[in-house]
């Protein structure tokens, strides 16, 4: 619904959302740690965690959106994504981060750090993809 406070954002980023890890453990989204993602990927067998370094953050033609350029994985593949400024990414060893942490906290109640160039985010690929 356009009137939803989280319009354009997935509901699972709202503080208090229950997340199921690959081993069945339940955690709140704000309590997730780097190890939870790494261990879940190991258990899943299908998914592989990649380190995606933020190379550039630039404005988008869309209001409240940015284009983030990542350098993904060992091959340093350059990938650009357009996201809302409040969209949270999980930074290795740090936790949730977004381009506009104040807005993320306002909309989702999720505490965030400021996402910056050089931050290493967790991303996923399918193991079958080469």
């Amino acid at each position: 619904s356009p009137s939803s406070p989280t319009a354009g954002l997935p509901p699972f980023f709202m503080k208090g959302s229950i997340i199921q890890l690959a081993d069945g453990e339940l955690k709140r989204v704000e309590d997730l740690r780097t190890e939870d993602f790494v261990q879940s990927a190991e258990v899943s067998g299908e998914l592989k965690i990649d380190s995606s370094t933020v190379e550039r953050i630039e404005g988008s033609g869309t209001p409240n959106a940015v284009i983030i350029q990542f350098s993904v994985g060992e091959n340093k593949a350059q990938v650009c994504v357009e996201v809302l400024v409040e969209y949270p990414f999980f930074v290795f060893g740090q936790g949730w981060s977004s381009c506009c942490p104040d807005r993320t906290t306002q909309l989702l109640a999720l505490s965030c750090a400021k996402l910056s160039v050089g931050d290493v985010c967790i991303s996923l690929t399918l193991k079958s993809l080469k």
């Binding site: 199921q20 995606s52 990414f89 999980f90």
Partner: peptide, 25 residues
């Protein structure tokens, strides 16, 4: 009687982006 409300549970992999090299600019 009040029915207990089910709480949605989300899969961990929903929270991290799939960055595939096919998206390369």
């Amino acid at each position: 009687n009040v029915e207990p409300r089910s709480v949605p549970v989300f899969a961990w992999h929903s929270l991290v982006p799939f960055l595939e090299t096919s998206q390369t600019k």
